[in-house]
Nucleic acid binder design. Structure first.
Lengths: 220, 220
DNA sequence: GAGTAAGGCTACGGATGAGTAGGTAATCGG
DNA sequence: CCGATTACCTACTCATCCGTAGCCTTACTC
């Protein structure tokens, strides 16, 4: 238990429910990220949140519910960041570029969120996967829409239009694991990571080995 | 406890240690894959293996050791499959194609192995990640070597040679998550999955949206 | 400034599951 | 055929940790 300097037990200051809920989810994301779902104990989360355990149960329910709340909040934030980064009316490669930059920008600034979101929720399976699947599906649709827009503008080829969704899935997957890889190689900048993936998926190795690379437009 | 039809307790038949160890690891892979590291209990593994729990401890040590043994065995098998699938002396795109096909072929026939290897070991972190990292690094080096060979043959461009390793990392990552995606969309064939990734990383979207696709050579 | 609702706490029950102690039966070298 | 070795088992101990019962205490409300 926490004791003040005079040895008296410390009671947390009274705060409105909304604020506490935020603090609790913050703490939970941090602990889940560091220890994983199972090794994270409700006791530790409550300690990090600066509050006692029964409050978590009162506000956010059981451990599963708490975890689901984490997933949901972080997924929403991530998607908003990516959607917000894309400017309509641009050519598709530029849209893709901005989307990737927003994505890696978010992951770079919220590594803990990403760790919980991707690694943990995938590994747990069950009810958590659904939340993640929903987000991934939205991301895939987004990418597919960008590609299809190109198609309708310029008369897309048969192969691409038929395979739009799975290709988008592959790209989203590539982004996910490159982000994972990045967790373990944190020295790179978000833009440089985004550029790597952009070159890989837009130009392809076939072009890259002959030094034909993709470059962002002037205005960045 | 297991009882025979006459109500007598059943004692497992005596078998040499090597055989039992194999059975135990087989059972462990299956249970870890289905339930995840933490929810898998040693009791259930012993039951699936058709043997009692102390035998596991006697032969393979604690739960962590058992899991590490699973990772190690499956990783070795996977890498051997991929390396064995690549024929030297072929052009780089064909080598890549064969490597991808072997990879997805293995994952398709050993979904349980892949689930343990990738999803579980990544999520657990700690000592298990190392084993996986080592394997991934070997895969990355392999891919990088294929790309670099192209470079020295045809005078590779500055961008590609500088970025060889990270690009290979991105490709390996893309393969990993496409395999993960595949776990949840099992209706596709291994070749079709491999072809998707091949097109994505070799041709790039830039080509695909204009219907320029990559096709395997005549002899498959 | 009493009443009350909402924020906060300590301390425990109960389940689960890792790991072990200590003993029995089958095989093998002599 | 007889130790000795090795395979194998049942039945526990002990720690961890989720979730809750029951009880204070602070701050608005009239």
């Amino acid at each position: 238990m926490s004791l003040a300097e005079d040895g008296q037990p410390v009671r947390a200051k009274r705060l409105p429910r909304a604020v506490r809920e935020r603090q609790i989810v913050d703490a939970a994301v941090s602990v889940f990220s560091r220890l994983g779902y199972h090794d994270a104990s409700m006791d530790e989360i409550s300690e990090v949140a600066g509050i006692s355990k029964p409050m978590i149960y009162a506000y956010l329910g059981a451990k599963e519910d708490l975890f689901a709340a984490c997933i949901h909040r972080e997924a929403t934030l991530l998607l908003e960041a990516v959607v917000g980064g894309i400017k309509v009316g641009q050519p598709p490669d530029v849209q893709l570029w901005h989307g990737l930059r927003s994505f890696f920008g978010f992951v770079g600034e919220h590594r803990e969120s990403w760790r919980v979101l991707h690694r943990q929720s995938i590994a747990q399976g069950g009810p958590f996967t659904e939340e993640l699947m929903a987000m991934r599906q939205r991301a895939i649709s987004l990418v597919a829409a960008v590609l299809m827009r190109t198609g309708s503008d310029e008369g897309v080829g048969e192969a691409a239009s038929v395979a739009g969704e799975p290709l988008a899935a592959a790209l989203v997957g590539a982004g996910e694991s490159l982000a994972d890889w990045w967790l373990d190689h944190p020295e790179e900048s978000p833009s440089s990571i985004a550029a790597r993936l952009m070159n890989l998926v837009w130009m392809g190795f076939g072009n890259l080995v002959e030094d034909r690379v993709w470059k962002p437009p002037r205005d960045e």
